[in-house]
Design a binder for these strands. Structure first.
Length: 109
DNA sequence: AGCGTGACCGTAT
DNA sequence: TATACGGCCACGC
């Protein structure tokens, strides 16, 4: 049954991120099952971005900075997406204390 | 089956 | 503040 790859679990988590909120790579990894998967999260989104189903623009670094090599056309594009959802920035980074997705693995079930 | 890859993160210089 | 390096780990060739 549980033949799900880590990638699929990661995608599943990213899909649950609500509009107007962001999650860090670390956080996605944690929710997906293992906090040490942060790199894998980035790798997964880079290798297999499904823009239609996966809102990968809502995933940022732990500091609220966007990824340097964002697939859709650079960090500026990603920032624009987030601003459209009402996410507030300060000095080029998301105000994590205010806009970070508050979620526990239990809520994902 | 082994190795290179990377949209991370923490610490050191 | 800016680089550099090492650890981390699944995926694809």
């Amino acid at each position: 049954m549980e033949q799900q790859t880590v990638f699929e679990r990661i995608y599943a988590v990213v899909r649950r991120i609500p509009a107007g909120k962001v999650a860090s790579y670390r956080q996605v990894a944690w929710l997906a099952g293992n906090p040490r998967w942060a790199r894998v999260v980035g790798y997964a989104l880079h290798r297999n971005p499904n823009p239609d189903t996966i809102p990968c623009h809502r995933v940022v670094t732990k500091d609220g900075r966007v990824a340097p090599g964002f697939a859709f056309g650079g960090a500026q594009i990603q920032i624009q997406f987030l601003e459209q959802e009402g996410i507030g920035f300060s000095d080029g980074h998301v105000i994590m204390s205010q806009y970070q997705w508050q979620c526990t693995p239990d809520q994902l079930k």
